[in-house]
Amino acid sequence: MKTHVKNYLSLTKRDWNGITVLLVLIAVALAAPFVYQWFTKDNTINPNEFNLAIAQLNKSNPAFTSKDSKTSANVAPFKFDPNTITASQWQQLGLTAGQANTIINYRSKGGKFYKDDDLKKIYGITPVDYKRLAPYISVNSETIKPKIMVELNSSDSSKLTSVEGIGPAFAMRIINYRERLGGFIAKEQLKEVFGVNELKYKEIAPQVRVNVRRIRKIAINTITFDKLRLMPYLNYKQVNALIEYRKQHGDYQSMDDLRNIAIIDEQILRKIEPYIIFE
């Protein structure tokens, strides 16, 4: 029994050599970091040399100076009308050249500032920028006074483009929407035209008016599916429901009949009611 256990636990010379090599490798691995630190010294940054390098970089390329340092050191605030000041004056107020150009481009396309906080809606103007400039903004109402008054339901594209803020693309969108709608019953419907946000609407609204007598009515009892489908306030299913209900129950007599169609809610009915006639 002892002989058997002894033979099982005994190691050959080859085994001892393998163990020795393994122990050496482990020792080398554990010692390597200490040896590396001993022969390698970290390069420390000299603060004076670093500051000197930064100063030389700023001197050779002023564009690298921070906006914050410009704002604190070179800005001399003054009262200004955002509708009239130049790009260089915007930069004197502490804005970057990119921010100033954004505002100039906005104005060149017909954009106007109607009240002080319109400035913070400009892309690139941060809340910090606006808070700093707000006490100095002074919008002159004379600079935004409308020059013309255009009737929306009868104007062609050339007439619409005479409105400040409406270019050829916007004019075509307004006309296309007007044709689908049957005409505008209120200028607020311009907000439903793609691309007319609140700021654009405020710019356009003082220059336009609406003649409701020029709207085109929908003869709900004779109109076809394809023509009714153009009405932007109705989706495909709602148009189909209106046509099918008429087929099954006969002509509509009043708006109360339309209220029997479950998928058309009161909000939609209020929108289409000015356009509906029962003939």
Rank of each mutant, 00 (worst) to 15 (best):
A171C: 10
K237S: 10
I54Q: 11
A169T: 09
L228T: 13
F64E: 13
R270S: 08
S10A: 12
S60I: 08
N153I: 14
A73P: 02
V24R: 09
Q238T: 00
S10C: 10
W16M: 13
K121Y: 05
A76R: 14
K145C: 10
D156V: 07
T44A: 08
Q238P: 05
S155W: 01
N74V: 07
V28D: 08
G183T: 07
T102E: 15
I122T: 12
M149N: 15
R14K: 14
N61L: 03
K109T: 05
A97F: 02
F50V: 10
Q91P: 06
R216N: 08
N48W: 05
T86N: 11
T86M: 02
I276L: 08
D251V: 00
N211G: 01
K227L: 05
Y106P: 03
K159Y: 14
N61V: 08
K79C: 03
A169N: 01
I166G: 09
E151Q: 07
L95I: 05
I137G: 09
K159R: 12
D42V: 15
T126D: 02
N240L: 05
N221C: 04
L269E: 01
I204A: 07
T224K: 10
K187G: 09
K120V: 15
I276K: 00
A29V: 15
P168H: 12
E179Y: 08
G250Y: 02
I261Q: 00
R173H: 14
P135S: 13
F184N: 05
D68C: 12
P168L: 15
N51V: 05
S60Q: 13
W90Y: 06
E198S: 12
N7T: 13
S155L: 11
G165R: 06
N221V: 05
R259D: 05
S66V: 10
A27I: 15
N51T: 10
P146I: 05
E273H: 06
N211T: 00
T126R: 03
N43Y: 09
T86R: 09
P33W: 01
I220F: 00
I261H: 01
W90M: 06
S138E: 14
T161R: 11
N46F: 08
I223C: 01
E192I: 01
F78N: 07
Q267P: 02
S155K: 12
T161Q: 14
F278D: 08
T20E: 15
F50R: 14
Y236K: 15
L181D: 09
I85S: 08
A55K: 14
T71H: 12
T84H: 11
I272Q: 04
T102N: 10
D42S: 14
R246P: 01
P135V: 03
G124I: 00
R214D: 13
H4K: 15
N46Y: 10
F113W: 02
I263P: 04
